[in-house]
Design a binder for these strands. Sequence first.
DNA 1: ATACTGCTTAAAGTATACTTCAAGTCAAGC
DNA 2: GCTTGACTTGAAGTATACTTTAAGCAGTAT
Lengths: 141, 141
Amino acid sequence: MSYTIGEVVARTGLTASTLRYYESEKLLSPIRRDAANRRCYDKADMDWLELITCLKNTGMPIQEIRRFVALCGQGDKTLAQRYDIVLAHRQATMARIAALQTELLHIDRKVAYYRDACAAAKLAPAQRAVDPHCEGGAQAT
Amino acid sequence: MSYTIGEVVARTGLTASTLRYYESEKLLSPIRRDAANRRCYDKADMDWLELITCLKNTGMPIQEIRRFVALCGQGDKTLAQRYDIVLAHRQATMARIAALQTELLHIDRKVAYYRDACAAAKLAPAQRAVDPHCEGGAQAT
DNA sequence: ATACTGCTTAAAGTATACTTCAAGTCAAGC
DNA sequence: GCTTGACTTGAAGTATACTTTAAGCAGTAT
């Protein structure tokens, strides 16, 4: 069983151009073709796509994904290298999550600030200074 | 008390070019200059930089940061709009964290797979098939 | 005086990741 | 037979976010 590029578009949300681009960039091995030279994506291709999407979504650049995929094509002698890559990528992803959580606290403070400021503005309209480039007089940044 | 662009570079880790770029893109209001036309960043500028960096790090595009900053310069009449922006951005950031955590599970499985595969390869070297573009025969993607 | 360091500008260049375009092929439906 | 729609290609174009370049100025060290 296999899928046309249109079906893969429908299933993955990627565009056909992106799928061809990934193939041209060797993120995917050359996709099998039917008699009319149209791409036939099989289950294994879909699995690769899912992995590529995961790595891409977690911030791995195309170049490094390509490097990883290339190592996968070279057999068991590259297992250790691939292990190093996924391990480092897990660390990077955890670090990214932790960083976002820290930044989220900053954003939370902004949300609280504006919630209060909006409430105050409704109670006392036109009572506040207009300070160019600053959200208010005594703001906690 | 204020800082030269070099001091800001040292404190923030941004480059001088980036600082000038942010100013030219109106993410910062025009920075005050000394007698020799050199930029003097004051505490308020540093606070803005921190906020901009937070928004940028959490994936807000320059264009939207500029829009937010512009609203900040228009006084209390834009408080509600600014509240909407930071609220939406908090949602987006939480969604991003959740998505990363889901992807992390996928990566964790890869790490476990390679850990085992490396161990197995050491015990039984050269016993495994070389399958182009696939990490092994019975792999759980 | 001169060289050096740190800053200034506008404009052009770069990296990443696609996206769009133009022209063409193929199979199916009318 | 002819149109339509989904696909094909290589090449050029786009968006974002900077970075680099070239030329020059101000203040300090020798």
